[in-house]
Nucleic acid binder design. Structure first.
Length: 866
DNA sequence: TTTAGCATGCGAGAT
DNA sequence: GCATGCTAAA
């Protein structure tokens, strides 16, 4: 515990000078430019405060100003403040911005972080109170699933019918609700074929044996420690004199309990959030927490931030119109001093491909200034964009893995000068985002953008550390650092392939179990006793020798991993090998790098690239132990490429972001709102979807374009779609209905038979929906319907075939110059069916599927269907 | 033991 | 439509 006291003293000193500096310059400079509501939220220092911050109302600004205020007015020292966020990104951003307000980096805020990071810190100190050692490992979802799978199989349950993932989410659900196995209510006992609770219990036992915990445990263990040790809790209550919580609407029951315990004494808790942006119910968030705040904390002051600095009047009005459909809101009305701007644009398409094609064309129009919208674009909006850019330019962040996140996810910071100069006449690609409900919707857009050569980036998907190669590499590091890490050993023992299949691995398991040793030791015994012989045994022997050798190369006398701040690198490592070099050696000598070098699949170069990045990331750490300590909590996936690109992501991923131009495709009932959401959660599911719609619209600063398609392929099957009910809820006065020019009727008649699908499009449904809402009386809407009425001839499947034909491989012959999104320019060397052999200028020779290629230097022809 | 070929089933995804 | 995971063959 001594390190705790020491670091506090140090941090207090640092904080005092922070505050002094800020004060010396001018009293309360952080208040500059705050509106009255924001000031209110900043100045109400004591007692419970709920800051209801609508989208784009300067929430982070107010929150960081509040921290600056607490510090510089002497209410608190940096280590007196507990500030929790959900994501590392948010924590980083808050740190940076507090630092900026105070004129120097806010290094000394030890308790600003995510719920999980703070819990890790607490739990390392008090691990023994919950039967863990302070060097416990944190399992991620993947580890968790493998462990659960073992338990399921051991219990003689059919893993096919009852997959580990399902059990994992059941258990996570319980942990989100702070339910330990003994507290699971009877109503839930049927879960997982009535074996859920029993398996949950076994799982917890295994975790304790492995000296490990999962993400949920981080919170639950800390809660238990607090509940069982009044004195300790009281101590922390005194230490954390001021508590701030970001995105309070996303807290789950466990987080709520955790906060309530800590705030119980002084009640100086300031929660910031927006009930209208609660979109994470499916992962345990309880909107109820924010709705109940005033009951939970009697006498709470509620401040509403309603002045919006982001979006135009029409966009705000459209968003407000939609969200008003929800019941049980705390209620806010966003307003702006800015212009009304453009109305929200609405457009219908024949099918998903046409929607993607139209969006692609519209983006080209926006970026080249040929769109009507782009003309006369004024220099008004960009306060927020500008601020964001400034912040990023200064930023860099204090993250120890800088290399991986030089830029925030959108990469907007370092536009070349010429881009900046005309940014206000047209839109840069960086300023445009396409936000989809489900990630599979992205495919159509990716295909289209690759075809027309429009640069795009996808946000989301697997994070860096979730990638196979990263997890493999980390497993190697883990085995070297802690030889007892059986889960890691299992992962790497036959990766790359060493001829050690199920049977050999079972032999190792048995050997380890009967001797009561780790798998690594068990494997050693297997080799020594020739229990595993032949080729496999030899390879295993090589691996074990390698691990032993690498272990000796670890710097200094091996110390078990403790709290990160206790890890002090010792000078003059005996081996003379830095941990970065060691990492390279491990990956090389294990054959792992070679494995990917020999791999001919198109992903292999990317994976090698990722491994390089991983090694680079190590530079930011003192040693391997320190790296592993932090990595499961903080690695993220942000690339540092500078080229302006359109952003493609899910609505969920877009929360908290903003873009001058936003496309919201796929507004069709069943897709959005999602059928599954409504089936599972009924009205509350629908309301969450509606909040998602609200989040989507409010991401847009200037131009918001909603679209839907009449036909869509769902799991390979064509389905006719109805426009989303949320479209009916858009207030007419703020919507402009577009008809895509030249989109319809260019195909020519083919067959007169009208399928049910086409009748839907042509006939009553669209029309009924429109007239029922009595919204779309504009000429554009009528024209749209009329045009659709004429088009009774084209099968969706035929449309698709035509697209394929036009895109087809045969478009390329040997000798053609081509472009590939990932590998760049190259020349066609061979053609085999849909696979093309390409000699790339930079990336060497590869086999690529034809549809990922674009004819180079031929943008206008050949590659564009129709 | 590995891998090729077929059956299966599908949401959003921080920590 | 495609990724995942199993069974059959090499």
């Amino acid at each position: 515990m001594s390190s705790f006291d020491d670091s506090d003293a140090f941090e207090a000193a640092a904080g005092a000078s922070l505050a002094a500096r800020a004060m010396a310059a001018r009293p309360m400079p952080y208040m500059d430019g705050l509106n009255p509501a924001q000031r209110d939220a900043v100045e109400q220092v004591d007692g419970p405060v709920l800051m209801l911050a609508g989208a784009g109302t300067g929430k982070t600004r107010a929150l960081t100003a509040r921290i600056a205020h607490l510090l510089s007015m002497g209410h608190a020292r940096p280590n007196d403040i507990l500030a929790v966020t959900f994501t590392n990104k948010a924590a980083r951003e808050m740190k940076n911005r507090v630092g900026q307000l105070l004129g120097q980096p806010a290094e000394g805020m030890p308790w600003l972080g995510t719920f999980h990071a703070i819990c890790v810190k607490l739990l390392r100190r008090h691990a023994e109170m919950v039967d863990l050692k302070s060097n416990f490992t944190i399992l991620d979802t993947d580890d968790q699933n493998r462990l659960l799978k073992q338990l399921i199989i051991a219990s003689d349950i059919d893993e096919k019918r009852w997959p580990a993932r399902a059990l994992g989410s059941v258990i996570d659900g319980w942990k989100n609700r702070a339910l330990t196995p003994d507290k699971v209510p009877a109503a839930d006992h049927g879960a997982f074929n009535h074996r859920g609770v029993e398996l949950y219990e076994q799982y917890q036992t295994r975790l304790r044996e492995l000296n490990a915990c999962d993400f949920g445990d981080l919170l639950l263990h800390v809660i238990r420690i607090f509940q069982e040790n009044e004195d300790l809790l009281a101590q922390y209550q005194r230490w954390f004199r001021y508590i701030l919580v970001d995105e309070y609407q996303d807290t789950n029951v466990a987080q709520y309990l955790w906060l309530r315990l800590l705030a119980a004494g002084h009640k100086n808790i300031c929660c910031v959030g927006d009930d209208d942006q609660s979109i994470y119910g499916w992962r345990g968030a309880e909107v109820g927490n924010i709705l109940r705040f005033e009951k939970d904390f009697p006498g709470a002051k509620v401040v509403r931030l309603e002045q919006n600095y982001r979006s135009t009047g029409h966009i705000l009005a459209a968003a407000s119109g939609v969200i008003e459909g929800n019941k049980g809101r705390l209620g806010k009305t966003l307003w702006t001093e800015g212009e009304d701007g453009h109305k929200v644009r609405l457009i219908g398409h024949w099918d998903g491909d046409e929607e993607a094609r139209w969006v692609g064309e519209e983006i080209e129009a926006l970026t080249t200034g040929t769109s009507r919208i782009a003309h006369g674009r004024r220099n008004v909006r960009s306060t927020s964009f500008q601020q964001e850019n400034d912040r990023r330019a200064k930023g860099g962040g204090d993250s120890p893995i800088k290399n991986l996140n030089l830029q925030e996810s959108l990469g907007g910071s370092n536009l070349p000068e010429e881009e900046k100069s005309d940014i206000f006449n047209t839109f840069s690609s960086n300023e445009i985002a396409i936000l989809v409900r489900a990630s599979h919707q992205m495919r159509a857009f990716e295909d289209r953008f690759l075809t027309i050569g429009l640069p795009y980036r996808v946000i989301g998907g697997p994070r860096f550390y979730e990638r196979m190669e990263i997890r493999d590499a980390m497993a190697y590091f883990r085995v070297v650092v802690s030889p007892d890490d059986d889960l890691a050993f299992e992962r790497i023992v036959n990766t790359p392939k060493r001829g050690l299949g199920d049977k050999a691995q079972q032999t190792v398991q048995k050997m380890a179990r009967s001797n009561g040793v780790s798998l690594l030791e068990g494997a050693r015994l297997c080799v020594e006793t020739k229990a595993i012989g032949g080729k496999g045994g030899a390879a295993l022997g090589v691996l074990i020798d390698g691990i032993t050798r690498w272990r000796q190369m670890l710097q200094g006398p091996l110390r078990q991993v403790g709290p990160a701040e206790d890890l002090i690198q010792e000078e003059g490592a005996p081996s003379g090998v830095s941990h970065v070099e060691l990492a390279e050696i491990i990956l090389d000598e294990s054959g792992y790098t070679g494995h990917w070098q020999n791999d001919k699949t198109p992903e292999a170069p990317g994976r090698l690239e990722n491994l390089k990045e991983l090694v680079k990331a190590l530079e930011g750490f003192e040693n391997l132990q320190g790296f592993l300590e932090h990595v499961s909590l903080i690695m993220d996936n942000e690339s540092d490429d500078q080229e302006p690109k359109v952003t493609l992501m899910t609505l969920h991923a877009a929360k908290g972001l903003e873009f001058p131009a936003v496309f919201l495709p796929g507004w069709e009932d069943g897709l959005f709102p999602s059928q599954r959401s409504m089936d599972e959660s009924g009205l509350s599911g629908l309301e969450e979807e509606r909040r998602l719609a609200y989040v989507g619209i409010t991401r847009a600063e200037e131009v918001c374009t909603i679209s839907f398609a009449g036909n869509r392929r769902v799991y390979g099957q064509w389905q006719s779609q109805l426009p989303s009910r949320f479209i009916d809820e858009l207030p007419e006065a703020h919507v402009e209905v577009l008809t895509p020019p030249g989109l319809y009727g260019h195909q020519g008649a083919m067959s007169a038979s009208a399928s049910p699908v086409e009748q839907t499009m042509a006939g009553s449904n669209l029309h009924d929906r429109a007239s029922k809402a009595d919204v779309y009386n504009s000429p554009g809407w009528r024209r749209l319907q009329a045009n659709q009425g004429q088009r009774t001839m084209r099968q969706p499947s035929e449309a698709k075939n035509m697209t394929i034909d036009a895109d087809a491989v045969s478009a390329f012959t040997i000798g053609d110059r081509v472009f590939h999104q990932k590998f760049g320019y190259g020349e066609v060397m061979s053609v085999e069916g849909d696979k093309l052999g390409i000699e790339f200028d930079k990336a060497g020779s590869k086999h690529v599927v034809g549809r990922f290629l674009v004819a180079a230097g031929n943008e206008s022809g050949g590659d564009v269907p129709f």
